[in-house]
């Protein structure tokens, strides 16, 4: 059993099982929306961790404190949701993974969809007993700018830019390929079905043996979602360049641009 479960990664949790696990009190649900939105209503038993709160200081020691305060220990399964097509939830989930939590997944849909289906919501703020989570950092899922700079020159490493196409054309890290975050979702789910996603990535040559590094504009949200999209089709060798393009630019590293075309003027915005 143990050997079977190893390697079987649960990326998203479906609505039905989340509801029953809430009833069983066997999971911790994290709502990453802003505090005022959370206070109005949220999925029952959910605890609030706004992304901004995490990002204000995301060094592992502090993250560990936040996790403990939410009553999460190593054994407690965690499901994260947002109302931003899964991007903010992904960034939080990834952070939990990074400090060593092994059972974190994303709600398969957004809070708006949850509500539009007429499912339970609540405005009470739950309290949890302080827990002791261990700290087992997983550097193999993160890419720093230095790491990226060396890695991207290697054969078999694919660098993926998850910003919108126009932003990519305007400037990107040399060698990156463009996979806008909107590609990853369907109208109902934050991620495409596995077969669908696999075909799309196969067409792009994003397959098995490669190491893949994702990045986006500033804090690793859009690329966080892409990180989970890649994992969902069994591409485990994936890293998030968590400080993303904003840091890359601020370090004055090389940037590439699509030359000789006025593509912005084709946009209707």
């Amino acid at each position: 059993m143990c050997s079977l479960s190893q390697g079987v990664v649960k990326i998203t949790s479906d609505v039905e099982s989340v509801r029953s696990e809430i009833r069983d009190k066997s999971i911790r649900v994290i709502d990453v929306r802003r505090e005022e939105d959370y206070k109005q209503n949220h999925i029952p038993t959910a605890v609030n961790l706004p992304l901004a709160t995490l990002l204000s200081d995301d060094n592992p020691e502090r993250v560990l404190k936040l996790v403990n305060a939410m009553g999460i220990d190593d054994e407690m399964p965690v499901v994260v949701y947002d109302d931003t097509f899964g991007a903010l939830a992904s960034r939080i989930a990834w952070t939990l993974e990074f400090i060593g939590h092994s059972d974190v997944s994303l709600l398969e849909t957004t809070y708006s969809k949850w509500k539009s289906m007429g499912l339970e919501n609540d405005n009470s703020v739950p309290e949890f007993q302080l827990k002791e989570h261990s700290l087992k950092l997983r550097p193999e899922i993160v890419a720093t700018s230095n790491y990226l700079e060396t890695a991207k020159e290697k054969e078999g490493v694919i660098l993926v830019d998850n910003r919108e196409r126009l932003n990519f054309l305007e400037q990107h890290i040399p060698g990156a390929i463009s996979l806008p975050y909107r590609i990853l979702a369907t109208p109902d789910k934050i991620l495409r079905p596995k077969e669908d996603m696999k075909r799309l990535l196969d067409n792009r040559g994003i397959t098995g043996g490669s190491e893949i590094i994702t990045y986006c504009g500033s804090v690793g949200t859009l690329s966080g979602l892409a990180y989970y999209a890649l994992k969902s089709v069994g591409l485990p060798n994936t890293r998030l360049y968590v400080r993303s393009f904003k840091e890359w630019k601020s370090l004055s590293k090389p940037i590439e641009k699509q030359q000789d075309a006025n593509y912005w003027d084709l946009s209707a915005e």
Binding site: R165, P180, L266, A268
Partner: peptide, 28 residues
Amino acid sequence: EQFSIGSAHFSTRENIQLHWVVLEDVSE
């Protein structure tokens, strides 16, 4: 939104065009 630049373009011959699509995404 997924494969182009977040806009589409109506032509003079009753086509609608999606620009700046990655060649490998055309089949999608």
